[in-house]
Design a protein around this nucleic acid. Structure first.
Lengths: 239, 239
DNA sequence: CGCACGGTTGACCTGTATCAAGCCGGGTGG
DNA sequence: CCACCCGGCTTGATACAGGTCAACCGTGCG
């Protein structure tokens, strides 16, 4: 089977500094290499896991782009996050041993599968890993605080500006352009994430284009004036 | 000093089942007792920590009631959560070794101070504690997912109904009434948490009173028809 | 080629913010 | 003990952002 034949080794993975702790010695690196059970490919539109499925592993995105979303019985839907290379998915599953959201690939993707009991086992021995796991979870908590701040206090323009800046900043950290990006998600998914309707997202994009702040052609976005976006986020002129 | 004289022992704390793992043996319990360095009292209105302060410890609420909130440079303010007895505060500080929000006591309170390096140390030895820490962090992540769902997709009535039901459910788990509660926070703080203005919170309370769903006298709230509240949350009649 | 899905744009409506006035209850000082 | 004050709360009038509904467009895939 293909899966088995792939040599999985965090120690020489080019995403190492994104998902792994730094400053490990040789022995610790070898222990870390045991973390990843195998890799898994998910086609565009495919699901990595669904709400309610039993939780066994965390996933590190190697390539591709995911969204996580929550659906209530009554059909309400909320995108809770978008994940790109080097980011960890599945932390929500730990508390009840089952996933509490859906993770869907927005483009063809590959993830490293890291059985959580193995993570716990190795992090008992490798302090740096233990601390790293705690930091990753804490980071997710802080990120969500930030989203709550957005959702609770910002208006459409501010939301979309903050969203674009965040995306481009994360892409930049991965070696992509600071000013150009391709949206992997629909307007509706952006809207769901930001608490807006897709029409409002579309209109707000159009407004930005009018103002000369960005160029938008379909899902291709070029940021012409990042500072203007930053000003929109900070300004809350409406008090 | 009074602090020193208090015998701090998780093993016979009446909140144990709320903040500690269950099923520990004698030796593990003794290790766990080393977790809490001391207790700390905070007067109503006092701060447990502030954004930017160095992070060293997690705090378990023993008595009293806290809010955590985030303030941006431009004066925007968002309450990110309310914490009551048995709940853990400070998880946001792990990632950058400094707190990233403010924690303020809404009534006179007492917390157990748990140095985080000690938590990490002991959880390397006591598997149950390690797992418990992971669960607590995961629970916080899931809770915030839920808040994002609220903020992103609900309207005032739904938000307030969900808020009241959540509060009363948590209070009930602590042995308080299922139908009566005293709000420890102002309308403005509720509004900030829910992404509403205080006037809207007030109006929505009034509407619930008109409908005979709740009784409100100042901060004293009696829930007359919990099912009606539940229906409001589920119904999203507005599509 | 044509269909379907995602996106844009317009007209209109509604929920919530905003601004403003006044009320209530608890604490303080005369 | 009462008068006053102040913070928190309620209520009303009005404005406006964003939701809703609907028509249409463009592009990429079968």
């Amino acid at each position: 089977m293909l899966k088995e034949s792939i040599k999985v080794a965090c120690s020489n993975c080019n995403l190492r500094e994104l998902c792994m702790p730094v400053g490990l010695n040789e022995a610790e690196l070898r222990r870390i290499d045991e973390l990843v059970a195998h890799r898994r490919s998910i086609k565009r539109g495919g699901t990595l896991f669904r709400n309610g499925e039993v939780f066994t592993s965390l996933f590190a995105v190697r390539t591709g782009f995911f969204k996580t979303s929550l659906t209530t019985e009554d059909g309400r839907d909320q995108v809770t996050g978008f994940q790109m290379a080097g980011e960890i998915i599945g932390l929500d599953g730990i508390v009840n041993d089952q996933h509490s959201c859906d993770a869907v690939a927005l483009e063809d993707a590959e993830v490293c599968v890291m059985p959580f009991d193995r993570i716990e086992e190795i992090s008992r021995e490798v302090t740096a890993l233990q601390h790293h796991v705690h930091k990753i979870m804490s980071r997710e908590i802080v990120r969500e605080h930030g989203v709550m701040l957005l959702l609770g206090s910002m208006r459409a323009e501010e939301l979309l500006a903050a969203f674009l800046l965040n995306l481009v900043q994360r892409l930049h950290a991965r070696g992509f352009s600071q000013s150009e990006l391709i949206l992997r998600m629909t307007r509706e998914e952006i809207g769901s994430y930001l608490g807006l309707k897709l029409e409002t997202v579309s209109r707000t994009f159009s407004k930005f284009v009018e103002d000369g702040t960005v160029e938008v052609k379909q899902r291709h976005v070029r940021i012409l004036d990042a500072e203007a976006l930053q000003r929109i986020v900070n300004n809350n002129q409406c008090h």
